[in-house]
């Protein structure tokens, strides 16, 4: 008899692989409670909650967190608008250079971040744009647009063209058609794309190092903290927050796009 059950060896190997990926995360969490503040010592000599209080009181943490949240929110908003428009243009109409544009939109995510970062920095310098909050946002928007675009374009392809014509035929103008037909059919794709974009922006380091001035986003702040040890477990507390803040949207995106394969374009 052929069995659907995997052999024990394969199960153990799969378990070990997953453990290898996720156990270090637990280590980070544990160090957030250690009493030792200079070096990471295993096992922790004692456990304490005081680092949560210390972190709460640190103004630099709040500043970095606030900057990261604002950058992620605005980059995501820009990406949602531009990514949707671009996806609509590429999937709904035929024009010269359509394939090229599609490729150029996707390219930034394939490009190493360091190249995006260097080229943006060079471009900002050349144009005499001082580094600021907005240069970080621009840098992040380059790859956030891709995520939204990819999600939206896949959904647009599944909306049959006659749905839009049906709406026009029933008296709705272009704006009403977008509002009542297109948006409801791409909403979950946009939400998923937006959440992924937010998470990407929130933990981005490389592009940010090149496009930020004096400001520190949360990941950059963490990097600096690791270099000069002072109240080290504070970094671990922040790391826990980052994991939660980025993990929840990704989980949400996963559940939103799951099981929506049959949303649009079911004409027949």
């Amino acid at each position: 008899m052929h069995s659907d059950r995997a052999p024990m060896g394969l199960k153990i190997a799969a378990g070990a692989g997953l453990a290898f990926m996720h156990l270090p995360l637990i280590l980070i969490f544990v160090y957030a409670f250690t009493t030792e503040e200079k070096s990471y010592q295993w096992p922790p000599p004692g456990l304490t909650l005081k680092w949560f209080a210390v972190t709460w009181g640190r103004a630099d943490v709040w500043e970095a967190l606030s900057l990261s949240l604002r950058v992620a929110a605005i980059s995501t908003a820009i990406a949602l608008v531009l990514g949707t428009l671009c996806a609509a243009a590429v999937s709904r109409s035929k024009f010269f250079g359509r394939e090229a544009i599609s490729l150029m939109v996707i390219l930034p995510i394939a490009l190493p971040g360091i190249i995006t970062g260097i080229s943006l920095r060079a471009a900002f310098n050349l144009a005499d744009i001082p580094f600021s909050f907005w240069t970080i946002v621009l840098g992040h928007a380059t790859f956030c647009v891709v995520v939204v675009y990819n999600n939206a374009v896949a959904r647009f392809r599944r909306i049959s063209g006659s749905l839009i014509e049906a709406s026009l035929d029933l008296g709705a103008d272009s704006f009403q058609t977008f509002r009542h037909v297109i948006l409801p059919n791409i909403a979950t794709a946009l939400l998923a794309g937006g959440m992924l974009a937010f998470a990407l922006s929130f933990d981005e380091v490389i592009v940010t190092t090149f496009t930020a001035g004096q400001q520190q986003t949360l990941p950059i702040w963490m990097l600096e903290e690791l270099v000069r040890p002072r109240q080290r477990p504070v970094t671990n507390v922040v790391a826990m927050v980052v994991v939660l803040v980025t993990f929840l949207p990704i989980l949400g995106a996963y559940y939103l796009t799951r099981g929506t394969e049959s949303v649009a374009g079911q004409g027949k």
């Binding site: 006659s162 049906a166 709406s167 029933l170 709705a172 949303v263 649009a264 004409g267």
Partner: peptide, 21 residues
């Protein structure tokens, strides 16, 4: 005159019913 201003309605070959409604 755009389609939405014509007093004409269409039954589409693939019916084109709105799947979300």
């Amino acid at each position: 005159v755009p389609p939405y201003k014509r007093h004409v309605n269409t039954v589409f070959q693939d019916y084109a019913l709105f799947p979300h409604l």
